[in-house]
Nucleic acid binder design. Structure first.
Lengths: 110, 110
DNA sequence: CTGTATCCTGATAGATACTG
DNA sequence: CAGTATCTATCAGGATACAG
């Protein structure tokens, strides 16, 4: 149960790393756990695991198990997850337009 | 210093009540502290004070002191604050389109 | 009417180690 | 390679009381 539609949306993207994950999966639809962790350095193993799990529960991410040994699992965005990209882009665009660049450690978009 | 442009924007709107405040000030550009607290019930006095203060520091809200006795202070959105409205609307729209209505206690937009 | 100070609690994130 | 369990640190939000 969410307070309102804004809160509901925010819950899904609030996590410190979720947008990064969203963008990673958007640019490569066959991403494995370790690849994510490498690209999102310095994210912790446990945190990445938690955030992905939440995104799966929220229906944003899909988990595909190849049932191979050694384990081979790929993550990709669901349609719902993809539909979130334009919204996130809008947030980024506003940030680029209104926040002084010197205040940013790095940029995601553009 | 923000991690990136997304984080920077999120910092400004992340607070539990900031969007509500944003919408309140957007619908009435001459809002006083007490009016805000009434409309945002059950927000705490202290929390409202903190959130407004942060929004002033972030350049989203303007504080106009009429120097009257008893105290008379009005808050309104700055241009920067107003420019945030479309972004917030986009987030709400996505929520309305993708979250089951039965999961929402109330709705802000529409 | 508007604002601040104290204290408390719950959620989030991170360090580290362990399992199949 | 992928995932879980513990323990700890930090912070946002809130109850309450006090102040100009």
């Amino acid at each position: 149960m969410y307070a309102n539609e804004f809160d509901a949306t925010m819950q899904l993207i609030r996590g410190k790393w979720k947008i990064r994950i969203l963008y990673e999966l958007n640019s490569d639809q066959h991403t494995r756990f370790n690849a994510l962790q490498r690209n999102l350095n310095p994210i912790t193993h446990k945190i990445l695991s938690e955030q992905i799990q939440q995104m799966i529960n929220d229906g944003l991410v899909n988990r595909h198990d190849f049932h191979e040994q050694p384990l081979h699992i790929e993550y990709n965005l669901t349609t719902k997850g993809e539909s979130l990209i334009p919204v996130v882009d809008a947030i980024c665009d506003w940030g680029l337009a209104n926040i002084d660049q010197s205040e940013l450690k790095q940029t995601l978009c553009e």
